[in-house]
Design a protein around this nucleic acid. Structure first.
Lengths: 236, 236
DNA sequence: CGGACGCTTGAGCACATTCAACAGACGTGG
DNA sequence: CCACGTCTGTTGAATGTGCTCAAGCGTCCG
């Protein structure tokens, strides 16, 4: 069975379950409900009560917030081995954002109460959850800092650099972002308009740093990209 | 003894220790180390290993991040009954930002290990910690959203509105922000320059919404302020 | 083949930054 | 107590980044 393979292949690499024994892991994974989500469908809605949390086995989720004015802000993308809804469930809060599948996605999910029981039996899980939350907060703080000091071009470069790490796939040409990523999406990640993203990518393409396509970005020269991301304001 | 009074006065109002019995609270508070921090001094430095976490009894801390280019970004202000360093200690991470006293501040602090023991004896603490972290994450997400969609004027209004809730003090004229807050500080909170803040406040002062002074802001008309903060882009 | 969607590109404009100069307030030390 | 330097805040003018508005193109899909 396909999903069983996936489950096995993840073992020992899930941050939330790090440091647990094989048996513990088996038991935990067995208690999870399998779930499948077709591309474009929504896993949970911003503001809804956090019923359960989810471990991604395969696929990819987009976590985004909708503003009152109708525009979207992409908080992050989540890939295999990452958890969604963890923060909300742990704190007993409503989901802070909406999660949508950008590819067909397989999940394991646990109910709210189950997490409590698990954390009680294996306290390491609670520690891991804390660490994950800490990491996510760090990311958000970095992002606030970027939005405050850096130019749009720099932020786009950073966003791409992060996506390379998270979802990069080696090809003959370079490293391709391995899912459908429109200019609009990139714009919503860095806080600009699709126009500016388009222009920026076009100018990079002329210099041979990236190669674009419809909902597709390939990085040809990662080094130049990160040098754009890191370069400070003073030096031109 | 002054600090004893402070400690008593906080009881039952500290979010981290919510839902605990009187006795538990007594024991916990007794295990905390008293500490005093004079205005301008630093409690912990960004990047340092998180030794201990801190409960503010009285005073106020500024939590800020320094960018490589030398500019500062103010993450938040912390007041009485709030905890600092909680996230880092829980997750075993370095402190994500630098905390400095903007007033003379009294603290209770616990070592890293102590928190582990406390959370083991009273699991409610862990839940509370999660909820606090969840709340902080929500704030950060909101801030990212604001930075991405809203104009500077709107962001300043929001920042002031939040400060009113957090540190507002009723006076004859209106509500005064109860600590030294320079234009530069406000600028670092909303991601702009002190020039723009100065101009914005000046224009508000003309309409009678606020009243400014050296490191001092008084809100005369909170209603107008929040209407500036909430108004959407489309309506002028 | 038509429409929807994603992308590109141009022109004009506005908000906010940058640069610059100055005015008060505060603290310090002679 | 006054002179001084530092820090904070004000204001004007020039500049520019990135947004808005607008039009058009290519591609994917029904």
């Amino acid at each position: 069975m396909r999903i069983e393979e996936l489950r096995e292949s993840l073992k020992g690499q899930v941050p939330l379950f790090e440091g647990l024994t094989e048996e513990a892991l088996d038991e935990i994974l067995n208690r999870g409900q399998r779930h499948q989500l077709a591309r474009g469908f929504t896993l949970f809605q911003q503001g809804a009560f956090a019923e359960s949390f989810h471990l991604i086995l395969a696929g990819r989720l987009k976590v985004a917030q909708n503003t009152p004015e109708g525009q979207q802000v992409i908080v992050r993308y989540l890939g295999p081995r990452e958890v969604a809804g963890c923060v909300a469930v742990c704190g007993g809060l409503p989901y802070p954002a909406t999660a949508t599948a950008v590819e067909d996605t397989w999940l394991l999910q646990w109910k709210r109460e189950a997490l409590g029981e698990l954390a009680e039996r294996w306290p390491q899980i609670a520690v891991n959850a804390m660490r994950i939350m800490g990491g996510r907060m760090q990311e958000l703080q970095d992002r606030v800092r970027e939005l405050q000091g850096e130019r749009v071009e720099q932020r786009i470069a950073r966003a791409l650099a992060r996506l390379v790490v998270q979802a990069g796939r080696r090809t003959a040409e370079g490293i391709e972002i391995d899912f459908a990523l429109s200019r609009q999406d990139l714009a919503e990640m860095v806080g600009t308009t699709l126009h500016t993203v388009s222009r920026t990518l076009a100018s990079w393409e002329q210099v041979g740093i990236v190669r674009g396509g419809r909902q597709r970005v390939t990085i040809l020269d990662p080094h130049s990209l990160s040098s754009i991301a890191e370069r400070s304001e003073v030096e031109s």
